[in-house]
Write a protein that binds this DNA or RNA. Structure first.
Lengths: 210, 210
DNA sequence: ATTCATTTGTGAAATTTATCACGACTATTT
DNA sequence: AAATAGTCGTGATAAATTTCACAAATGAAT
């Protein structure tokens, strides 16, 4: 929206910073240096300072950063003041795990609806989230802009087309399929098999430190 | 091990290429161009050619790549000839999903043992994988070099210490904790909340195409 | 007050990654 | 056999990201 000056690599780290600042705040700390933060999040301290600097001078030389101030700043930057509703498509093993997983403790993103092709699941409630049949996407998806895709790989492409038609703007894709979407739609892939394989590859070919 | 010349960015894409080559092979295709592959995996064709070129001249000008040859090449490069055993630590919702998830169809990585702190889970069997009590790590972890960490965040650090002591070399960490390990140990983080938050951030701040 | 140990913010350099663009070669068609 | 359309491999360039290293500012200690 505003300044597209923030590098993508930086943007990806913001939620991480936000979470650890929350931790610090809850621990009652009111001051933190880039060095301390670096040890906590495992990101080089110069990188952290550089990241913060894109938003202006948030710290004080010789002092560090004020936790509360920084937290407030990130809260508004990450839009944590307004709630974002997310739909979960595919209530299988992985989808169920997400519904039960309260991984959204410190932030205002909520999975508010689940969808599945199995009619027996429709009408149920998992982890406090109501489940609907996949055919109800049209009626129930209004106002929701983000979807988590945890369907079988074979269904991914078909369901993506429906999601696109219904106006979804962002998809977090957990299927191994590389889905095709119009340019305006953002897809992030989390590919569990690829992650595991590449970890194994790195172990064998890049032994020891980084 | 051998040439550390392969860029990390390339190494991360290898498993992806491998999977799609497998698909093509199963479809009976025996020839593929970087352009076709590009459309399938959503990676620029020049990048694909560059990636392949680190391993030598695998293709033929004016022709493309022979699927079977390429597949054989990647199989040995990705060590798909030998089986890699992986332990899953933490049989909660997410862990159970992985055990049931046969996301390791086309490759030789297998979750062979699960561990959990709940004594009631010990002795059971989920998705064909035997579950042991976490106290049995010492006896049961021999020969296993990779672990998937799906325990509660509060337990992550303590259990990581045990894993390190038992000789684990690589950890795929699904907890939001940023665990501390000696330099020789490789950790890849998959942070679901961060992924979701950063997707939402990108949507709001970087609208439309990339 | 003065000194000292810290710590930021950032110019500059280094490193890593992605992309362009084209010569060289291949297969196919006419 | 010549023309054509397709494709790789790669030098060169561009873009993105990380890291170094230090002046300037701060707070604490004496």
């Amino acid at each position: 929206m505003e300044q597209n000056k923030i590098p993508q690599a930086t943007a990806k780290r913001l939620p991480l910073y936000y979470r650890f600042l929350n931790n610090l705040n809850q621990q009652g700390k009111n001051r933190v240096s880039s060095k301390e933060l670096s040890e906590a999040v495992k990101v080089d301290s110069a990188t952290i300072r550089r990241d913060f600097s894109y938003f202006g001078a948030l710290g004080k030389k010789g002092y560090g950063y004020n936790v509360e101030y920084l937290l407030g700043f990130f809260r508004s930057t990450l839009d944590q003041n307004e709630t974002t509703e997310v739909a979960l498509i595919g209530v299988g093993n992985l989808g169920t795990a997400f519904l039960n997983y309260s991984f959204l403790k410190n932030n205002n993103i909520r999975i508010t609806k689940g969808f599945d092709a199995n009619p027996e699941k429709a009408g149920t409630n998992i982890g406090g989230v109501p489940i609907y049949h996949i055919d109800e996407l049209h009626e129930k998806l209004e106002g929701i802009r983000v979807a988590i895709l945890t369907v079988p790989a074979t269904e991914a492409e078909t369901i993506t087309e429906v999601l696109v038609k219904e106006g979804i703007e962002g998809i977090l894709n957990f299927t191994p399929a590389r889905i095709s979407v119009p340019e305006r739609i953002r897809v992030h892939h989390i590919d569990l098999a690829v992650e595991l394989q590449s970890l194994v590859y790195f172990l064998k070919h890049y032994p020891l430190g980084e």
